Amino acid sequence: MKKTAPTIRDVAAAAQVSTATVSKYINGAQRFSPKVEAALASAISSLGYKSNPLAKSMITGRTNTIGLSVLDITNPHFSSILKGANRVANDQGYSVLLVDTEETPSRERRTLEDLSLRVDGMIVFSRMREHEMAWMTEIDKPLVFFGSLSELPLPTVASDDHSGAFMLSQHLRMLGHKRIAYLGFSKSRRDEERLGGIRECLDAAGLPLTIYDADAPSLAEGERLCASIVLGSERPDALICYNDLMALGFMKEAENLGVAVPHDLSVVGFDNIPYGKYTTPALTTVDLQSERMGATAMEKLLAVIRGEPVEKLTRIAPQLMLRASTMARRA
């Protein structure tokens, strides 16, 4: 015969206290004398009592769950962010509930409003422009945003995309590249920051920039646009891609077209996803510290939930990862 699980009444009887006292003790709503707390702890241990998380959340209004909204979970950049966020959450007794908006701005609001009903706070990526996001400040849950915001009063964690793009451009310039192109993704606000860093570097050197725009930040788009870039009349001698996925897709198709990287043109990306290290040639990229970004955002959100003051913007410094997809050009 299956043994019945001990109840809160069993704990109260064993500790010789009221059920209300047991409830307040379990939920951390009140402290008691050392003698009472010792009796409660002993009763819970000896009976093997386990509290019901759903019942606890109904009493406290807390779920001990954090919502994380990403743009595309198949992108290893977001997987690394999840890993960093989840590690910090688990250390603090929280779980992470992940939602994927699949690079679709039109579904973000409904998804995030639904998510807010199930969690104690949220960490959010968004493709929306800032003037379209005012409704986020009306969500009645603590929220940390990924990326820079100029007007909305939300705490944020951001990579320094401008500096990362400047470093990539400077590296290519120092290798002797004169015809540099950018395969960007203008639907992202981060594209604007990256393009700004590239322009700052090339303008200072008096070098032109050719810009191509992708429909999605994906392997398939890098592959699709490759022919128009490398077979055109003005083929660049170096290409900066919006992210590593686009760079890897481009490099694969370039090989199919008989164009050698880096001998015919150098290729670089952003994110330092794991795959880039193991391609041939290995991809030069900017490491935006994805896992650290996730951990930092979670630490900031949990501080907000505890009512602690936090700085509005935490910016993560990038690191240039030099590999074999770039090479010097002859003067």
Rank of each mutant, 00 (worst) to 15 (best):
R323F: 01
D91V: 14
K178N: 10
F145R: 01
M122Y: 06
R62Q: 15
L71V: 11
V259Q: 07
E192W: 14
I211F: 02
N243G: 04
L209T: 07
S45M: 10
E253R: 09
F146D: 06
G61I: 13
F185A: 12
E132K: 01
S46I: 14
Y49I: 01
M1Q: 07
L68S: 11
S325T: 09
E138Q: 07
C201A: 11
N243Q: 08
R62H: 12
E221W: 00
G258R: 01
G93K: 02
C241R: 01
R306W: 06
S126I: 14
D160T: 08
S57M: 04
M136W: 04
L68K: 05
L209S: 06
T326A: 13
D191C: 14
S95P: 05
A297C: 05
E308K: 04
M321V: 15
R179Q: 09
L40P: 00
A12C: 09
I305A: 08
L183A: 10
R330L: 15
Q319P: 07
G184H: 03
C226R: 02
R179Y: 03
L143Q: 02
I198G: 01
S148I: 13
F166Y: 13
S126A: 02
M246P: 05
P281K: 02
T296M: 00
T21M: 08
S186R: 00
I273F: 00
D237Q: 02
S23M: 08
F146W: 02
K277Q: 14
S51I: 13
A317T: 15
S42V: 10
S45F: 07
S33T: 10
L248G: 04
C201K: 03
S18T: 04
T63S: 11
Y94D: 06
F32M: 14
L283H: 03
A220C: 07
V230Y: 00
R224C: 10
G61L: 08
D237S: 07
A297E: 08
V261I: 14
R315I: 15
N86K: 12
D287H: 04
V259E: 12
A216E: 12
G249Y: 00
A15E: 08
A158F: 06
R315S: 15
Y275A: 15
S57T: 14
S325P: 00
S325E: 03
P262H: 10
L231Y: 00
F145K: 02
A254G: 00
G222N: 01
P142G: 11
Q289D: 13
S188R: 00
S188L: 05
I73Q: 02
E253C: 10
E221K: 03
P153N: 12
G84L: 05
D191L: 03
L82V: 14
A238W: 03
L320W: 03
S228K: 13
S325F: 01
G276N: 07
K187H: 15
D244H: 06
S80Q: 15
L195M: 06
A214G: 05
G206V: 06
G28Q: 07
I273Q: 06
P76E: 08
D203W: 05
S159I: 12
E192R: 15
F32H: 08
L301N: 00
T111Y: 04
T60P: 04
